[in-house]
């Protein structure tokens, strides 16, 4: 049975938050200090060699409230521009439109986020299961200590150390970029190999720094399950140890799945920072550049895109969760 009501409820919540984020994005430049509009205005005049192109005047009007039009009409203009995919023009990468920059950067970021979050979820849960089943043994202690250490070491320092050891000193992995310049972009084997090769180090680093939470969470989820009455009952029925562990694991993974949707936000934060360190051409790298050059249109675009991606990710995970958890199917809650 498909949990319609549940999906409906989650979709409504998604739309509400999405609308909130879009509105917040409209208000941001109007709330930020240092008058971004003026900065953008001056930047555009400078880039344009003293004269200002009427197209950019329109952008300034719609995005930064420089025009004297009332707030609501600015707001509608902003919404209409958004529907047309018009996010303005970047300052740091003048005169590239923000939407085309994002279109180039977002796929790489999504690739990093999805790959690393999925791998770290699976390995982390397996390790947590291993620790929980062998609890209070040296195996458990070792896994626990490893996870806690990984969770406590500053993530960006680890990234720099990895970069130094594996790229700078030994040259095993490239210093940056998402693929080598010698391959043709497209769906061909050399390109895929090159892309995987370039992303190996960033993904490994993200997994190392995010795996600890999964391991410890899974361990704490599975221990009450291993001690529960129905497991004792299964033992008495004569089920094999491996079968019993599988039952306990299945029960313990549900609460971790809820954590999965919450972890998307954290994971995106991590990826944004790692990208800037590994010079990986994703959203994070552009964000650091945008901050450095006070490129507000680009920052706004990134803010909006990241939030939309996170929301969509959440919606997908929530809906999948609805199929997994039998309680949701029945109650629709």
């Amino acid at each position: 049975m498909i949990p319609y009501k549940y999906i409906f409820k989650k979709s409504i919540a998604f739309l509400v938050v999405l609308y909130g984020a879009i509105t917040l994005n409209f208000l941001l430049p109007r709330l930020l200090p240092g008058n971004p509009a003026e900065i953008v205005y001056l930047a555009i005049i400078k880039q344009g060699g003293g004269s200002i192109n009427p197209i950019y005047v329109h952008q300034l009007e719609s995005e930064y409230g420089i025009s004297n039009a009332p707030m609501y009409s600015q707001y509608f203009q902003y919404l209409i521009d958004l529907l047309h995919g018009n996010l303005g023009v970047s300052i740091a990468f003048f005169p590239d439109p923000v939407s085309s920059i994002l279109a180039g950067a977002l796929p790489w970021t999504l690739y990093l986020v999805i790959t690393s979050i999925v791998i770290s979820f699976f390995i982390g849960n397996r390790l947590g299961r291993y620790a929980g089943i062998n609890r209070n043994t040296f195996k458990d202690l070792f896994v626990d200590l490893f996870s806690m250490f990984m969770a406590s070491f500053p993530a960006f320092v680890l990234a720099f150390i990895m970069l130094d050891i594996f790229s700078v000193d030994s040259g095993i992995f490239p210093l940056g970029g998402a693929y080598s310049s010698s391959v043709n972009i497209g769906f061909n084997l050399p390109f895929i190999i090159s892309a995987v090769y370039h992303s190996f180090l960033p993904i490994l680093t993200i997994i190392l720094t995010s795996i600890g939470g999964w391991v410890l969470g899974m361990r704490n989820n599975i221990i009450p399950n291993v001690n529960s009455d129905f497991i004792t009952f299964s033992q008495n029925l004569g089920l094999k140890k491996e079968q019993i562990n599988r039952i306990a694991y299945r029960n313990a993974i549900l609460p971790n799945l809820t954590g999965f949707s919450m972890s998307i936000g954290l994971s995106v934060s991590g990826v944004i920072i790692e990208e800037s360190i590994f010079s990986y051409p994703g959203v994070g790298l552009y964000m650091i550049t945008a901050i450095g050059s006070l490129d507000y249109p680009l920052l706004q675009g990134i803010f909006l895109m990241v939030i939309i991606s996170v929301l969509v990710g959440n919606l997908i995970v929530d809906i999948l969760y609805g199929f997994f958890d039998p309680r949701i199917k029945q109650e629709g809650e």
């Binding site: 919450m262 998307i264 936000g265 934060s269 939030i307 996170v310």
Partner: peptide, 12 residues
């Protein structure tokens, strides 16, 4: 909402 918005964005 506060949980799913990436913290980095809010910090920035």
């Amino acid at each position: 909402i506060f949980l799913i918005i990436p913290g980095v964005l809010l910090i920035m």
